[in-house]
């Protein structure tokens, strides 16, 4: 049995747990805890260790999705989760510009863990006040070579599209480096 891992990261409340829940074939193994800090009480619960979703691709191949905790005080988990990942998705809440700086910082941190492929998913594009992916690219100073993909984490097709874009990128890099 071969397993591969994709990490879904991003700031607090970006929609990481929802993203995994939407595509996972199993009920997501979530390590959520009631929010204790008043400033973070914009939702009832938050991920403190990781979210864990699973997609059985074939009898001998399983794709695992790991969601990182969004709050900085749990960032000791990030490096552990990043180990051996195929690539990662940075999920950004497109209606919360106050989280963009944090998203940029998380992106830089994960890039430093491993030079694996990644994409940025501009989540909550179904909301009226959502910043467009191109505006997000400028705001987060994301180079033009990096894909910024519109996303609605509650929509299965949208989540699949983000994962596919990441996988296309992996293929491109394998081809470029002459892999099999």
């Amino acid at each position: 049995m071969q397993t591969v891992k994709i990490v879904v990261t991003g700031p607090f409340s970006a929609g990481k747990t929802q993203f995994i829940q939407t595509i996972s074939e199993i009920e997501v193994v979530a390590t959520e805890k009631k929010i204790s800090r008043p400033e973070e009480r914009i939702k009832d619960q938050t991920t403190v260790a990781m979210d864990f979703g699973r997609i059985s691709v074939a009898d001998d191949l399983v794709l695992y999705l790991f969601g990182t905790p969004g709050q900085r005080r749990f960032d000791f988990m990030w490096e552990i989760l990043a180990e051996g990942m195929l690539g990662f998705v940075v999920l950004v809440d497109s209606v919360k510009p106050e989280t963009f700086r944090e998203a940029r910082s998380i992106l830089d941190t994960f890039r430093a863990y491993a030079p694996v492929p990644y994409v940025v998913a501009a989540n909550k594009q179904d909301l009226e006040d959502a910043w467009s992916p191109e505006d997000l690219r400028i705001a987060l100073r994301i180079p033009k070579e990096v894909k910024v993909i519109p996303c609605v984490a509650t929509n299965r097709e949208s989540v699949k599209n983000v994962l596919l874009e990441l996988l296309y990128l992996v293929l491109e890099l394998i081809d470029k480096e002459g892999g099999e």
Partner: peptide
């Protein structure tokens, strides 16, 4: 970690092409 970035440096992960194609 945390440093501002320049051009992205991405490398292919250690996985076979056929595995990615299957997914």
């Amino acid at each position: 970690p945390g440093a501002p970035s320049g051009a992205p440096v991405m490398r292919a992960p250690a996985v076979k092409r056929s595995v990615v194609e299957k997914i």
